[in-house]
Measured scan of single mutants.
Amino acid sequence: NKFNKEMRNAYWEILHLPNLNEEQKNAFIQSLYDDPSQSANLLAEAKKLNDAQA
């Protein structure tokens, strides 16, 4: 299933973003579980936030 793979990839990438705190990571990961079809968008948002907090 495409979403499972996308979701897993997004999950791991978000988990390893160095500039997000636990609360931010948890919020993105919760959103992933709530709507796996948004994995790519959530990952993009997480990366933007990560870069902004660098």
Score class of each variant (00 low, 15 high):
Ile14Asp: 00
His16Phe: 09
Ala40Ile: 14
Gln24Phe: 06
Glu23Thr: 07
Asp51Lys: 12
Asn9Val: 14
Asn9Met: 15
Leu43Asp: 01
Lys25Ser: 05
Gln24Leu: 08
Ser37Phe: 09
Phe28His: 04
Lys48Asp: 10
Pro36Ser: 05
Lys47Ile: 04
Ala54Gly: 06
Asn50Ala: 07
Leu20Phe: 03
Ser37Met: 05
Asn26Lys: 07
Leu32Met: 04
Leu32Ala: 01
Lys2Asn: 10
Glu22Phe: 14
Ala27Val: 08
Gln53Phe: 09
Ala52Val: 08
Tyr11His: 09
Ile29Val: 12
Gln24Ser: 06
Gln24Val: 05
Asp51Val: 08
Ser37Ala: 09
Lys25Tyr: 04
Leu49Ile: 05
Ala52His: 13
Asp34Gln: 13
Lys47Glu: 09
Ala54Phe: 08
Lys2Gly: 14
Lys5Pro: 06
Asn19Gly: 09
Gln38Phe: 04
Met7Lys: 01
Lys5Arg: 03
Lys25Gly: 03
Trp12Asp: 10
Phe28Met: 08
Ala54Met: 14
Glu45Ser: 12
Leu49Ala: 10
Asn50Tyr: 01
Leu42Lys: 12
Lys5Phe: 01
Ala54Ser: 12
Ser37Tyr: 08
His16Ser: 12
Leu15Ala: 05
Leu15Ile: 15
Leu15Tyr: 12
Arg8Asn: 12
Asn41Glu: 07
Asn4Gly: 02
Ala46Gln: 00
Glu6Gly: 00
Asn21Ser: 11
Lys48Gly: 12
Asn26Asp: 12
Ala52Asp: 08
Glu45Ala: 14
Ala52Asn: 13
Ser39Ala: 13
Phe3Asp: 10
Glu6Ala: 04
Ala54Arg: 01
Ile29Ala: 09
Pro18Gln: 12
Lys2Arg: 09
Pro36Ala: 06
Ala52Gln: 14
Leu49Met: 12
Glu45Lys: 14
Leu43Pro: 01
Asn4Gln: 04
Arg8Ile: 12
Ala27Glu: 12
Leu42His: 07
Asn41Ser: 09
Leu15Gln: 09
Asn41Trp: 05
Glu22Pro: 03
Glu6His: 03
Asp51Gln: 13
Asn21Val: 13
Leu43Trp: 02
Glu45Gly: 14
Lys47Ala: 04
Leu43Ile: 04
Tyr33Leu: 07
Ser31His: 06
Ala54Leu: 06
Asp35Thr: 07
Asp34Val: 04
Glu23Tyr: 09
Ala27Trp: 14
Leu17Asp: 00
Asn19His: 08
Gln38Tyr: 09
Leu17Trp: 03
Glu6Ser: 02
Asn9Ser: 07
Gln24Asp: 05
Leu32Asn: 01
Lys5Ser: 04
Tyr33Ala: 02
Ala54Ile: 06
Leu43Glu: 03
Ile14Asn: 00
Asp34Arg: 08
Ile14Gly: 00
Asp51Leu: 11
Ala54His: 09
Ser37Asn: 08
Ala44Ile: 13
Asn50Gln: 03
Asp51Asn: 04
Tyr33Arg: 04
Asp34His: 14
Asn1Lys: 02
Gln53Asn: 13
Asp34Tyr: 07
Ala52Gly: 15
Ala10Val: 05
Leu43Thr: 07
Asn41His: 14
Ser31Leu: 06
Leu42Ser: 07
Gln30Leu: 11
Phe3Met: 03
Gln24Met: 15
Pro18Gly: 09
Pro18Lys: 11
Gln53Val: 13
Ser39Trp: 15
Leu32Ser: 01
Phe3Trp: 01
Phe3Tyr: 08
Lys2Ile: 07
Glu45Ile: 10
Leu17Ser: 04
Glu23Ile: 11
Lys47Met: 05
Met7Arg: 02
Leu20Arg: 00
Met7Ile: 06
Ser39Gln: 02
Asn4Asp: 15
Gln38Arg: 13
Phe28Asn: 01
Ala46Ile: 03
Ala40Glu: 03
Ala52Ser: 12
Phe28Ala: 05
Glu45Met: 15
Glu45Val: 12
Gln24Arg: 05
Arg8Pro: 02
Pro36Asp: 02
Leu49Gly: 05
Phe3His: 13
Glu13Thr: 15
Gln53Met: 12
Lys2Met: 11
Phe28Ile: 06
Ser31Arg: 11
Glu45Thr: 13
Tyr33Ile: 06
Tyr33Asp: 02
Asn4Lys: 02
Asn1Tyr: 01
Leu42Gly: 02
Ala27Ile: 11
Ala10Glu: 01
Tyr11Met: 15
Asn9Arg: 15
Lys47Phe: 05
Leu43Lys: 09
Lys5Val: 06
Ile14Glu: 00
Met7Asp: 06
Gln53Pro: 06
Gln53Leu: 12
His16Arg: 11
Gln30His: 15
Leu20Met: 05
Trp12Lys: 15
Tyr11Phe: 07
Asn21Glu: 04
Ala10Lys: 02
Phe3Arg: 00
Leu43Gly: 03
Leu42Trp: 14
Glu6Val: 04
Asn41Lys: 13
Asn19Tyr: 10
Asn41Ile: 08
Ser31Met: 08
Ala44His: 13
Leu49Arg: 09
Lys2Phe: 13
Asp34Lys: 10
Leu17Met: 15
Ala40Pro: 05
Asn1Met: 02
Ala44Tyr: 07
Gln30Ser: 15
Leu20His: 00
Asn26His: 08
Ser39Phe: 15
Pro18Ile: 10
Asp51Trp: 14
Lys48Pro: 00
Glu13Phe: 13
Ile29Leu: 07
Ser39Arg: 15
Glu23Trp: 13
Gln30Met: 09
Trp12His: 11
Ala10Asn: 03
Gln53Ser: 07
Lys47Asp: 03
Ala44Val: 12
Phe3Ser: 03
Ile14His: 00
Ile29His: 08
Lys2Val: 07
Phe3Val: 14
Asp34Ala: 14
Ser31Pro: 04
Ser31Asn: 08
